[in-house]
Design a binder for these strands. Sequence first.
DNA 1: CAGCTGTGACTGGTCTGACCAGTGGACTAG
DNA 2: CTAGTCCACTGGTCAGACCAGTCACAGCTG
Lengths: 251, 251
Amino acid sequence: MAESPRFQPVQPVRAYERIVEQVEDALARGDLAPGQRLPSERELVAQFAVSRSTVREALRVLESNGVVRSRPGDPNGPEILPFSSTALRKQLVRLARVDELTLAELIGFRMIMDGAAIQVASRLRTPAQLTELTDTLTAMRTAIDVDFAAFSEADLAFHDVIARISRNSLIETCNEVVRGVVLSLISNKIAHAPNSRALMLESLQHHTEVVDAIRDGDGTAAARIARQNMYDYYAGYVPEAEREALQALID
Amino acid sequence: MAESPRFQPVQPVRAYERIVEQVEDALARGDLAPGQRLPSERELVAQFAVSRSTVREALRVLESNGVVRSRPGDPNGPEILPFSSTALRKQLVRLARVDELTLAELIGFRMIMDGAAIQVASRLRTPAQLTELTDTLTAMRTAIDVDFAAFSEADLAFHDVIARISRNSLIETCNEVVRGVVLSLISNKIAHAPNSRALMLESLQHHTEVVDAIRDGDGTAAARIARQNMYDYYAGYVPEAEREALQALID
DNA sequence: CAGCTGTGACTGGTCTGACCAGTGGACTAG
DNA sequence: CTAGTCCACTGGTCAGACCAGTCACAGCTG
């Protein structure tokens, strides 16, 4: 033989995988859209010509991936869900536990992403978007007197506006996911919330400085301030030995 | 009643979910480690006191999440897998399709992450690590004469060293995942590989400039060069209207 | 007529038991 | 000690059954 073709290792394809594949392809092609319904399990049994066990295994995988949701008794069948970052977060949490991701790595990640989003935003922002930012600042200010939860919500809204301005939803999705992981790690390790009002005031001050820098159009400064703020906020939870890598992110 | 406690919406917990939960908890606690084996399905039926269907649905979910792998006939039972970014990538690909993530967003993400890693690396690098970097450069140079695949491999090794120096494996994991998504998107849309040798030479030149900047300890410059290089490399695939957001990342 | 209620046809969740092709370790023959 | 055979066991799939829950609708009540 002239040349042995490079063969690929082959593993058996299970029936339920073909079903998952077909559903995901239909979703990618647009034949299936969020909000639509899948036929009932027994109907799928007929369409795919397999047993109900097989259909159910496929549905369990799709459900675990956040593609569909089944509810018993629902005559409309399983529902196609809109994308949510839940599954992404789940994988990241797993990565954090199994691969021994440190808190410092997660915070460093957020410092990078948040700083970058603000840098882009200060370049691309329109005057209207700038006032939108200042509006969220006032919303944060009033939320301080209400509740810590309300303040968190206003904070989220702020970052949401930043993400919209920077025209990169991936950044914001990652930010949100990692933020959730960080919070869960911290609340697992440390019972905190000491003097939350002072924290909120400080955070508001920081955000105000960032918006000022964005107004000036100085993206580098805005990003530096944002990273510094996040460092100040979280560094207390990070072992001293790992702080150096975070400080290196600030200049 | 004095104050109505805030009730949580409740959804039924299915039996297979409890099984998944128990396995993942055992993994998080360290009672189960990659390489170990789960009991066989029929043994699990006895231990969890449920039917085989239920056990199998749990195993399908775990398998879909990259936690275990079942092989028919294996008397040792399902294998606990080490973490791999495959599941993470799967979710990201889904995000890209369903949430209409643009190529520009993905590339912007990589510009940010890669630049940040290089910035940290130029601050933290030891002399030994610096020579390690130059070593990978020479490896890339020799790989050019071999194969494009070999060059890609050397390129990956370079970024691996960067990640190690910057002490943040999350950055590198995300980089790798997004890189895979970008490549799949590009190869789907464009049949390319024109004059690959010139591309490799140019890429090598860029990497050399980055290492020079790292040697000088100028993190800002190193990061800018890296981002500029990535922009040059990918901008051709991005619609002009979306390039502005990428350019804003470069300064 | 509007509004409530009871009912029944369906849903998904779980179980039982069965068959098959394939695997790998133990056992045997050399 | 090695090479080959064999068989207990594995996971993949199927068929059929039961249950609790949901929802649409017919029919009743005011």
